[in-house]
């Protein structure tokens, strides 16, 4: 699904990430940890091609990213759902319209009806908020809304960058359980977090692997948790 071979990323002459080797298999669940500023977000951005590696090989869905043009990147992102810690919405659209956006920009808005949309919003606990504007949502609600938007296209891969960073423990567990449920449906999950308790909580429910970024390099932190 995602494959890196000796990939590196540098910016302004400074090496941010080096010698990265990884293969994310379909249906796997990976945590990504590391100290603040270690390059977790940079790594995530490489995985949905918001950044290009400076050297080495990066293949996403079996395609070398260097061979992709901008339309290819757009099509590739339709297969990846991204959730950020600071998730952004179109503030002039309500929650339902924001969640439907990925289908709309892919010109596939006919693929979902009102009932299915309400089911999805109900799954993330936001069915009662479908007409709310983004500014009216709490931090946890925004994260769940971002998750709903990320999965509405039924993506193969979900990349979540510190989605629990701004929410309380109860909400963090709720988000984690949603991601675990998605993984059980066959989705590949890559979740960046510095919260080790969250990783331990996941251990009981899912076979996950932990990647750690340290000294600008990507390490496999151990066997399945």
């Amino acid at each position: 699904m995602i494959e890196l071979k000796n990939a590196a990323f540098s910016y302004g002459g400074r090496d941010i990430l080096m010698d990265m080797n990884l293969r994310l298999s379909p249906g796997s669940f990976h945590f990504l940890t590391g100290p603040s500023g270690s390059g977790k977000t940079t790594f995530m951005r490489l995985c949905y091609q918001a950044l290009q590696p400076s050297s080495g090989l990066l293949r996403i869905f079996e395609r070398d990213v260097r061979a992709m043009d901008r339309d290819d990147v757009a099509r590739m992102r339709r297969r990846i759902g991204v959730v950020h810690q600071d998730c952004q919405f179109l503030n002039h659209l309500n929650l339902a319209q924001n969640v439907l956006l990925p289908l709309q920009v892919s010109e596939r808005e006919d693929e979902i009806d009102e009932e299915q949309l309400l089911d999805l919003l109900g799954w993330v606990g936001l069915a009662d908020h479908k007409d709310a504007m983004p500014a009216e949502l709490s931090g946890g609600e925004r994260q769940r809304a971002a998750l709903a938007r990320a999965i509405i296209m039924s993506p193969d891969l979900i990349i979540a960058d510190e989605p629990t960073g701004n929410v309380d423990w109860e909400m963090a567990q709720r988000l984690l359980s949603l991601l675990i449920e998605l993984n059980k449906m066959g989705k590949t999950i890559l979740l960046a977090t510095h919260d080790l308790n969250l990783i331990r909580t996941a251990k009981a429910e899912v076979s996950a692997r932990v990647l750690r970024i340290q000294d600008q390099r990507l390490h496999l932190a151990g066997a399945d948790l």
Binding site: Y48, D71, A74, R77, Q88, L101, V105, S106, R149, M153
Partner: peptide
């Protein structure tokens, strides 16, 4: 800028 980056993130093509 924010609108455009959200649209690019969710897979909107430049032409859209």
């Amino acid at each position: 800028g924010q609108v455009i980056s959200v649209l690019r993130l969710i897979g909107a093509r430049d032409v859209y």
